[in-house]
Amino acid sequence: MNETYRALAEFAQTWGLLYFVGIFLCVVAYALSPRRKKQFEEAARMPLRED
């Protein structure tokens, strides 16, 4: 049982790390996408708008 737990823990650590690195890279690509620039600039000015 101890060896099974160790193998499962190593698998989870390795693939979990790769999964979160992949998610992080997707979020960074989304945030830095040139297509989103206008949308983010509007959102940045939203608190300063007087409706």
Rank of each mutant, 00 (worst) to 15 (best):
F11Q: 15
D51E: 15
V21W: 06
Y5D: 02
P47W: 07
A44K: 10
L18F: 06
K37W: 09
A7W: 01
A7E: 09
C26A: 15
A9R: 15
M1H: 01
L32K: 08
C26G: 10
Q13L: 15
E50H: 14
M1K: 06
S33Y: 02
E50C: 05
A44H: 10
L8W: 00
A12R: 15
Y5L: 10
V21K: 07
A12V: 05
T14A: 15
A12S: 13
R45T: 01
A9N: 14
V21Q: 09
L17F: 11
L17I: 02
Q39W: 05
M46Y: 14
E41N: 08
L32E: 12
W15G: 01
M46R: 12
P34W: 02
Y30G: 00
P34M: 03
K38F: 03
A12I: 14
A44E: 13
F20K: 04
F24E: 07
A44M: 05
F24M: 01
A43S: 11
V21I: 15
E41M: 10
T14G: 11
F11I: 11
S33G: 03
L17T: 15
V21A: 08
E10W: 13
L17M: 14
R6T: 08
A7V: 04
A31M: 08
C26P: 06
R35A: 10
L18N: 11
Y5W: 10
P47E: 11
E3F: 02
L32F: 12
R35T: 03
T14W: 07
R35K: 14
Q13C: 12
S33E: 04
E3H: 00
L25I: 13
L18C: 06
L17K: 15
F40I: 00
T14D: 15
V28H: 02
